[in-house]
């Protein structure tokens, strides 16, 4: 996971390379690492430990996609999604939910709070990459 200070730098890099920026909020550091490894060839990945970090940082960034874990300490994925959507700039930003539970209830909430898509953990590399590609192409 990147430290807060480095995010501006990342963004700068992003601009240089022109690769899409993906913000991912998940309190699981291992999973952050794994996803970063998976995405590193095609995307710029910024991992954030919680929603507060995301809210603090998102104003200065131009993400192509936000990946949210549903279950997190503090503000959960759904609340975070609502918060992001309330900013007009991000009203059309694709949001991908990752959920640990397979319950339909989560799925319904996901849609009602304005999520774009969802995947259930554990998620396979190929599936995640395919979904991300699809979302970014569709909403960019």
């Amino acid at each position: 996971m990147r430290k807060m200070g480095t995010i501006e730098k990342e963004f700068a890099e992003d601009k240089e390379t022109g690769r899409p920026l993906i913000l991912m909020v998940d309190d699981d550091a291992d999973f952050q690492t794994i996803v970063r490894e998976w995405l590193q060839d095609s995307y710029e990945h910024v991992g954030l430990a919680d929603g507060e970090e995301l809210i603090n940082e998102i104003d200065g960034l131009e993400p192509s996609l936000v990946i949210l874990d549903v279950r997190m300490p503090g503000a959960d994925g759904f609340k975070l999604c609502e918060q992001i959507r309330s900013d007009r700039r991000f009203s059309h930003l694709p949001v991908l939910f990752l959920t640990g539970s397979k319950g339909d209830e989560d799925f319904m909430k996901n849609l009602s709070v304005g999520g774009t898509a969802y995947l259930t953990k554990p998620v396979a590399r190929k599936k995640l990459l395919a979904t991300i590609k699809e979302l970014i192409e569709k909403y960019s």
Binding site: D30, F31, I34, E37, P122, R125
Partner: peptide
Amino acid sequence: LQEPLRKILTFGDL
């Protein structure tokens, strides 16, 4: 138990 196992497998793959 399954979750850490998956991580082991994924990191092994990496």
